[in-house]
C-alpha cells in the first residue's frame, strides 16, 4: 500500500485556521451557534476548531459538544463486527440555535444522515451546517453536501483517506492510501 500526503502539518494548520475564519464570517461571536463533533473522529477536529476560534476571538464562550451516532446508523447488523458506541456530551440547548456539525472526512454522507437524526433527538435547531476537513468528491450515497470544506480530494472507492492528529499520532497529517496493483 502506498500513501500520498494530502495535507502536511503546515497546510493542516492553515486549513483549520481558514475554516475558523469562514465560521466567524457566518456566526460572528457564536452567541447563537453551537458546534458538535461527530464521534469518534470528529471530536479531534472540534477541539482544534474551538482552540483556534478562541485564539482568534479571545475567550468567547462557544458551546462545543460531541455526538455519538452509533444507534442511528443504517448499517446496524450489516457489518461483520458491530461498532461500539461512544460518549455523547451535549450539555447545552440546541433548540433554535445554529448548529455546526463537524467531522474529519466527508465521504458517502451516511454519517451525516445518522448525525442529523441523532441531533434532532435533542431539539429543533434553527439551521444546521456541516464542516469537514476533507471532502471526498463524487462518492455521495445521499444528496448531502458539506458547507465548509478544508480540502476536496478526488479518490477511488478502493482508496482510503486518513486524518492523523498530533495528540494521537505525533503529527498533524492527512494521507491518501492506495492499494498497490
Amino acid at each position: 500500500m502506498t500513501s500520498n500526503i494530502i495535507l502536511d502539518p503546515i497546510q493542516f494548520h492553515l486549513t483549520v485556521s481558514r475554516l475558523c475564519y469562514e465560521l466567524i464570517e457566518n456566526h460572528d461571536d457564536f452567541s447563537e451557534s453551537v458546534i458538535i463533533g461527530l464521534q469518534p473522529r470528529g471530536i479531534y477536529l472540534v477541539k482544534r476548531i474551538k482552540s483556534e476560534l478562541n485564539r482568534i476571538l479571545g475567550e468567547v464562550d462557544i458551546p462545543v459538544g460531541t455526538l455519538d451516532i452509533t444507534f442511528y446508523r443504517d448499517d446496524f447488523r450489516r457489518r461483520d463486527i458491530p461498532i461500539a458506541a461512544n460518549k455523547t456530551e451535549i450539555d447545552f440547548i440546541i433548540e433554535d440555535k445554529n448548529v455546526i456539525l463537524v467531522d474529519d472526512v466527508f465521504y458517502t454522507g451516511r454519517s451525516l444522515r445518522a448525525g442529523l437524526d441523532a441531533m434532532l433527538a435533542f431539539g429543533r435547531p434553527k439551521q444546521v451546517e456541516m464542516l469537514t476537513l476533507i471532502e471526498r468528491k463524487y462518492s455521495r450515497h445521499f444528496p448531502l453536501q458539506p458547507d465548509y470544506i478544508g480540502r476536496s480530494v478526488d479518490s477511488l472507492s478502493s482508496q482510503r483517506v486518513e486524518v492523523e492528529w498530533k495528540e494521537l499520532n505525533g503529527k498533524d497529517l492527512v494521507k491518501l492510501y492506495t492499494i498497490d496493483a
Binding site: Y72, A85, N86, T88, D117, A121
Partner: peptide
C-alpha cells in the same frame, strides 16, 4: 454495562427513542 451507560444517556434525552 458499557452499552447501558449509553442507553441511560439516550433515555434521558428529550426524544428517548433510537431507530436501531
Amino acid at each position: 454495562f458499557k452499552t447501558t451507560d449509553h442507553f441511560k444517556d439516550v433515555i434521558n434525552r428529550p426524544i428517548k427513542k433510537v431507530p436501531s
